[in-house]
Design a protein around this nucleic acid. Structure first.
Lengths: 145, 145
DNA sequence: CTCAGTGCAAACGATTTGCAAGCTA
DNA sequence: TAGCTTGCAAATCGTTTGCACTGAG
């Protein structure tokens, strides 16, 4: 199984935190990092199954939670009923804009908006350093007008 | 049952759109408009029950959906697993900042952020006129440091 | 050899739906 | 009366959990 820097980081973190390095975790991690964009649990499960990597739904959810705790993935509720997961991009913080109809998600980076988030958080008793933002809109070609 | 302007509007809209004016709808509407802030279905159900207004869970959900369609309430998924509903305030558009720990929600109005939402929506093929925004943060006193 | 991790299936919580009965128009 | 609405209970959907088995260390 080919290795890559983030996978090695992950393995180190697992050891540091007293977790075991299991096949399931390796496969899941690779899948999350090889995919672009935002994936739900079902999509990951299918992708893994398609590659012959068996992993149960329970283990998938448990490990997505672990990956989030260890800071390797972010878990978003971008509308809809399911969580979407994305691997953390080193450095570039981005936010999301989502179509309320079809669920399409686009990423954007806006330092100006980040600055405002901080200010608003501060003004309302929230931690200015912890914040993610999402915009709910509608695709132009997604109907309604 | 005392009347108020929004309730009359609601009744008119019901008739215009070929819906019936039922007791359940009147009670739910009053409850939603008499409460401040963001309510979930369960809270509304209990509030109504406490006042002796019987309404079934199914009817509650069906009518919250109707209220949203008719533009009297907004339905938000502010994190968590349940939807929160709030009655539409005439005029003042606001957005939300939510604590990822305790779920506390604060409202804010920021014309500057609204302007940026428009721009970002436009830049990514979304409708600049349709957008709501939410910030996910953490209460300062809600732990973590 | 031990206990964290896994798979399975059952449990869960919020919301939705099918159907017979009730009530508005 | 006609058929939109309601209530009830069962069904869904995504996610979580209990428990006995498996495998990493």
């Amino acid at each position: 199984m080919p290795s890559f820097p983030e996978l090695d980081d992950f393995i180190d973190r697992l050891r540091q935190t007293g977790h075991r390095v299991t096949m399931e975790r390796m496969h899941l991690f690779r899948e999350v990092y090889n995919q672009h964009g935002h994936l739900d649990a079902e999509a990951l499960l299918e992708a893994l199954k398609a590659k012959g990597r068996k992993i149960s739904r329970a283990t998938l959810y448990r490990n997505l939670e672990l990956l989030a705790e260890l800071g390797f993935v972010r878990k978003h509720r971008l509308g809809g009923n399911r969580y979407l997961y994305e691997h953390v991009h080193p450095g570039q913080r981005h936010d999301h804009i989502v179509c309320g109809r079809c669920g399409r998600v686009a990423e954007f980076v806006s330092p100006a908006i980040v600055a405002m988030q901080r200010e608003i958080a501060r003004a309302h008793g929230f931690d200015p350093e912890v914040h993610t933002l999402q915009i709910h809109s509608q695709c132009l070609d997604c109907g309604d007008g």
